[in-house]
Nucleic acid binder design. Structure first.
Lengths: 146, 146
DNA sequence: GTTAGAATGAGAATGGTTCTCATTCCCGCA
DNA sequence: TGCGGGAATGAGAACCATTCTCATTCTAAC
């Protein structure tokens, strides 16, 4: 994984909004890059071994989201999870454990992906709705919860 | 829409859990049946013109969820929306407005639905994950927010 | 009708998230 | 190398959706 390229991309995204790529923000990005799926604030705090205060973490998440570096995800009740934006880590989908709430990334076959994209496009051309993105969320039970 | 059949189904689901199908719960089910997509507690309160107190509404939602009558949905930050369970209103997907958070139901073509189902099944047979359900969420802007 | 379990209503409590404010940091410029 | 100002930080209070508590009321079954 080309961490340095990721860092350069993120730094540029932040700079274009007059924001700095500080230690705390680097830590958040690194943790998200290392994770296999979106993480909640609590999970991030855990991954970072609570090296930054809650309020700073939430603020960093906000800044990174507005800079387009990370994207929020709402698959489970009450918590928002974040992951690197698509332009940084590519398009993918999610496996969501209905028991423990864990979320993992998963890729789907190109043929199906193309079919979904076609559908989304056709909705854009017919309905009173302009699609910008789509997400296939697969719910079930993860290995730990079986 | 055969409201009486819906009521009968819901009543039976509740009775099998020694719960009653009371006026407040009927109102919630009716509001959800009339809606074109999942509703949050606040939206329900609005639809019901605040005829039942918040605590009762949340309790009703809990009871109905545990009885399998309604299902929660988490597409937008901070709020949980509910809709009638699939066995009551059929399988469908969602259009989510990233601006105002509104969620509308949408059907997808059977061919694509079949392809998605196949994919989900294949994940079930290979990965350390047992799928129980799937949801295709299409994000974008609704007519009001364009 | 009585009674026990279920439901209700009001308000307090909870938990994730956001806000406030005083302080500290860091980049650009002298 | 020091200054100034906008950006970032840390601690804690505040916020808001949701859940809990508890006393009261309803309702179905005997």
């Amino acid at each position: 994984m080309a961490i340095s390229k990721l860092d350069r991309d993120v730094e540029q995204a932040l700079h274009s909004r007059d924001s700095r790529y500080t230690a705390g923000r680097r830590a958040v990005v690194a943790a998200l890059a290392a994770a296999g799926g979106p993480l909640s604030a609590a999970e991030l705090l855990d991954a970072l071994e609570a090296t930054l205060p809650l309020s700073s973490l939430y603020r960093s998440l906000n800044v990174l989201e507005h800079a387009g570096v990370i994207e929020p995800h709402f698959a489970t009740k009450g918590v928002t999870r974040y992951e690197l934006a698509e332009w940084l880590q590519g398009h993918h989908h999610h496996l969501i454990c209905v028991q423990c709430g864990a979320v993992d990334d998963v890729a789907i076959p190109p043929r199906l992906e193309a079919a979904v994209r076609d559908l989304v496009d056709s909705i854009g051309s017919t309905a009173e709705f302009t699609p910008t993105n789509h997400a296939l969320e697969i719910e079930g039970r993860c290995a730990r919860c079986l």
